[in-house]
Nucleic acid binder design. Structure first.
Lengths: 298, 298
DNA sequence: TTTCATATTTTGTCCAAGACAAATATGGGT
DNA sequence: ACCCATATTTGTCTTGGACAAAATATGAAA
């Protein structure tokens, strides 16, 4: 039996949403503590998990919530088969199999072998994004458990950090600050960007995820930063991302550039906002780096 | 101008709290959009930041919120001087100075030198906890900015991950799962535990922070886990931590042990809860590891 | 047909005030 | 000094209504 607060933390569905669904769609239907508080049983929690997963695939709640438990399961099954169909058997299928089969040692070995073979920069550009997408697809289709996704992220993060740490200390311009805004908790993208830029000798200072805007501003002046890189994962609503990025832009000195990347920025690729460079692909960062150095080479 | 949702993300004060404070104490006093939504100006945001920081030191909101802006600043100043007084100039004061002065290269160098000198296990046991406490105190006193705390955490995390990754692959029992429960986002503690246990040859599988209970259960069976380690930082309410830990205990097989550590567990040190071992200090983990191996040596 | 702008629907967030649960402080006894 | 019962403070949950924001459908122009 779970309270609404626990359920929010475990599923990521906000309390407001859980309550308004109950009112509108008649689901979920929690029992009540004698004080009137909602108590959700394991069955409904599980059903909400399935619903959340399907919603993250783009399905809309109105339909999902009006389905019976059987219909919902059948639907999830169907979606999974569709996703499987679409997934092409790329060169990294073997690695995904290792994630799916909880092959700890195998995954570690495969990743580090690929990194050694390709080098950090190529690995980050060519392999990591594809793997991330495969993992994302498999999670969306329900084939992959959360613990497998966590383990994969942790291992990839370790590998990248180790590789970056092994580089000779960078001392060429520009000085780059890497972080995400509050609300974006995924920090893997930052490591990937650093993995591309650090080998070029750029001085990267990574603050990890969720730096409040005020503190980004402080960090920029404390470290004499010349470029701020922000990363947004695909789950970040692009309208909010745009607004937030502009807010940062307004508070920073004009000579400090902002490069914003990550899956979300694909939607803004052609959006013209002064003083912000969109870098939906990692390769874009390299282009911008070259440009920056050219501009500042006098 | 900030909406209540932005303010919640940036300060960590929940919407409910912000609204109820307004009702009870008459502060904050946001203006309203024409639709009636609250809009907080920069000044009040800053004041709320100060209040939050003082509350994290243990001050109670009733008093802080009834103070005028001037009184509040004077009070914060006073608290800072008290904290400074209490802080003893330990052997690591120099490192803290580097954090405070944004000396990137110096901090990296000091940390890696200490690690090389003491070795991973000693570094994690003797140095890291003291540094963390100093950083915490300096943050509480307002001397340290959030970006400095982020940078410190990121650097220490990298160093530990690199050191752990450099160890020969562990292959001795027990197989240990490390994670935090949803609601606890600090993952540094997990790395520290791993830094103590991995050198002993224990097979550590780290999932990073915030694994839902259901998925901890799945991971335990997928990886044939024998010990689950949970970490709780000091901000986790110990009553909730106890309840959550018990919930995990109930769902796991009896032969899987739970070791719960982190600053919060100091309060539960003497609390007897069957099937859970409290490890408020890192050294406790080593003791438990020895015990475990002895018990399973037949 | 495609593309773009405009309606319409759906969905999530915010608001209000009251109630109560949980955390913390206080007083009195050992 | 410690511990327990009681009082106060503080945070979270409740309801139903309203509206903002996102997504989809519709229609017009290229």
């Amino acid at each position: 039996m779970m309270t609404i607060a626990q359920l929010e933390r475990e599923t990521g569905l906000s309390k407001d949403v859980l309550r308004v669904w109950e009112r509108r769609y008649g689901f979920p239907t929690p029992s009540r503590a004698k004080s009137g508080e909602r108590l959700y049983d394991a069955e409904q929690v599980e059903r909400l998990r399935v619903i959340k997963r399907l919603m993250d695939q783009g399905q809309r709640p109105g339909r999902l919530l009006s389905m019976s438990a059987e219909e919902l399961n059948a639907h999830a099954q169907f979606q999974q088969s569709v996703a499987d169909e679409a997934m092409h058997l790329g060169p990294y299928q073997a690695i995904i199999e290792q994630v799916l089969s909880d092959d700890i040692a195998g995954l570690r070995h495969s990743l580090s072998r690929l990194l050694a073979k390709l080098g950090l920069q190529r690995f980050v550009q060519d392999v990591a994004p594809q793997l991330n997408e495969l993992v994302g697809n498999n999670w969306a289709s329900g084939r992959l458990d959360i613990h497998q996704e966590h383990f994969y992220s942790e291992e990839l993060g370790r590998l990248l950090r180790a590789a970056i740490g092994g580089l000779r200390a960078a001392n060429q311009p520009p000085r780059i600050l890497l972080t995400t805004l509050s609300g974006e908790e995924h920090g893997l993208g930052l490591l990937m960007v650093e993995g591309v830029l650090a080998p070029e000798g750029a001085q990267c200072i990574c603050l990890g995820p969720q730096t409040p805007i005020e503190d980004i501003f402080k960090a920029v002046s404390a470290y004499a930063i010349q470029v701020v890189i922000l990363s947004f994962s695909s789950t970040f609503a692009h309208k909010k991302g745009l607004a937030a990025t502009k807010q940062v832009r307004d508070r920073l000195p004009a000579d400090v550039e902002i490069w914003a990347g990550g899956a979300m920025t694909r939607a803004l690729r052609n959006h013209d906002s002064p003083g912000v460079l969109w870098t939906p692909e990692l390769a874009d960062c390299l282009v911008h780096l070259t440009d920056w150095r050219e501009r500042h080479s006098n």
